[in-house]
């Protein structure tokens, strides 16, 4: 530095930072307000698309939160701590077609998030969709297309134990070709890690959700 640097006073610095913060704050709040509706609409569409995939006959979807004491319709916000978010799908006449909920667990690369379809009459999982994953193409992502694997979720036993506090049998992923019970998931050979992540995610979610949901199922029978 050849010239003597000018000393900036603290008030100048604070004023400059305050000015920038004010400008930036206005921009962010403005954009948030402006895009809020579109973002929420997008989220709703994305959710409905997922749920309709596992309940092809459904026409409308409502989101609920299952809390220890009961169930309540979900607001715009994310699920509260301790609550389990689930989705009730209704057919054209407003009758309950089934319940969908998310299970997620760590896979090979990242969280594997799946949406499972639960039939309250039969107490079975009757369908599976994948919300998001980053598994290895050609190996882990077979959970989307492998017929044998998807066949596990046509009738997966998740009935409750006698005390209604947990599942009668833990949902478990077993080695390829060794499935012997209705609550077991036959893994894809070569993609065991991803298969196990699916099983673990479903088990965790179902263990938490179904005992809370069962006593209040009557509330959901017909669309409110």
């Amino acid at each position: 530095m050849s010239r003597d640097p000018e000393i900036t006073s603290s008030t100048d610095m604070i004023r400059a930072l305050g000015l920038i913060a004010a400008i930036c704050g206005i921009i962010i709040v403005g954009v948030y307000e402006f895009t809020l509706d579109a973002v929420n609409a997008n989220k709703k569409i994305a959710l409905e698309r997922q749920v309709f995939k596992v309940f092809p006959h459904a026409k409308t979807v409502d989101a609920f939160d299952a809390l220890p004491g009961g169930i309540s319709p979900a607001g715009d916000h994310d699920a509260l701590a301790g609550a389990v978010r689930f989705y009730a799908a209704y057919d054209a006449t407003g009758k309950l077609a089934g319940i969908a909920a998310e299970g997620s667990s760590a896979g090979y690369a990242d969280q594997v998030r799946v949406l499972y379809a639960w039939d309250p009459e039969k107490q079975l999982i009757i369908g599976l969709g994948v919300i998001s994953m980053r598994e290895t193409p050609g190996i882990g992502d077979k959970i989307l297309v492998d017929r044998d694997f998807l066949h596990n979720f046509v009738a997966l036993d998740v009935s409750l134990a006698a005390d209604l506090n947990s599942l009668a049998h833990m949902v478990k992923t077993v080695k390829h070709g060794t499935k012997s019970h209705d609550w077991e998931i036959d893994a894809i050979s070569g993609a065991t890690v991803t298969s196990k992540a699916v099983g673990r995610g479903i088990n965790q979610s179902a263990q938490a959700l179904l005992p809370r949901l069962m006593p209040h199922l009557a509330q959901l029978r017909n669309k409110s």
Binding site: M13, A16, L17, I28, Y32, T35, A38, A46
Partner: peptide, 30 residues
């Protein structure tokens, strides 16, 4: 912008527009 606080100012400005883009992309396509 005084040069003592320029880095902080730039980062705040950049972060603002990143937030704007973040909302905009959510609104365009999830």
């Amino acid at each position: 912008i005084p040069k003592e606080v320029r880095i902080a100012s730039y980062i705040v400005i950049i972060a603002t527009f990143v937030t704007v883009v973040d909302y905009a992309i959510q609104a365009i396509s999830l």
